[in-house]
Amino acid sequence: MAWCRGVDPVRILGTFRGNDQGGWDPADHNFQLYTIVIGAQTLHATGYAMGIAKDGRVGGDDPAKDEAAIVYFGDGATSQGDVNEAFIWSSVFTAPVVFFCQNNQYAISEPLERQTRVPLYQRASGFGFPGVRVDGNDVLATYAVTQDALNKARGGEGPSLIEAYTYRMGAHTTNDDPTKYRIASEVESWKLKDPIARMKSFLIRQQVADNDYFDSVKADADALAAKLRADCLSMPEPAPDSIFDHVYPHGSPELDAQRATFTRYLDSFADAPAGGHR
């Protein structure tokens, strides 16, 4: 999604490299920063969408001027209070927001059955708006339902929930160990549903793309990957006193004093022998 919104992937990697906590300007890309606390963003999207409605940018005479918000979250997030509150708020205020749940069937180690006894898309009806399940590994179907839901939101019909049914092929993080909680055959069966492979065969069968095209896509991807690796490794070390940047829009005398003390403290090491403390 960040890619589609034009966010340089290096900016995202910078967050995971520990350089920053979200280095891009959301206004430049209409793409918000990651909240990390599970599901919190659904309320933010709802509030933003309420603002769109207040600004009169839904259901207008010129559909090109109408706006909507879309928010992404996982199957685990649907258990959070925030997500359920977002469903309520968006519904009662007819907010132009699309809830896109990427149901990859695992919240780290916990299978979907630990979060729900009904298909997730059915939850929407209890909150009073439409829900739809789509094959999340079908690129065109996912695009179609997303476009439809966004158009409805822009047209003033309020929120909807999309449950994109998919699978998490790898581990949740480098610390995770999926062999502890799922069997290899399950992973193997999902390999056969790879959305990129499926899209490729579709394009071949439709005779709209040839090998030259796929070769060029692969070359582009390889070049991008090489650039990302290089850019990631060459990220500059953030300045130590950047800790004090951007705590408040207009700064704070107290923090200015703390920064000055910290800088003097760091300077006191200038004459210290390398490798040792003072």
Binding site: E237, S242, I243, V247
Partner: peptide, 18 residues
């Protein structure tokens, strides 16, 4: 410091050390 916990690459400066 009286800041949010900083990004990982500067956390050694945030944390009190020896």
């Amino acid at each position: 410091f009286d800041t949010p916990y900083p990004p990982a690459r500067v956390e050694e400066h945030y944390l009190p050390d020896l």
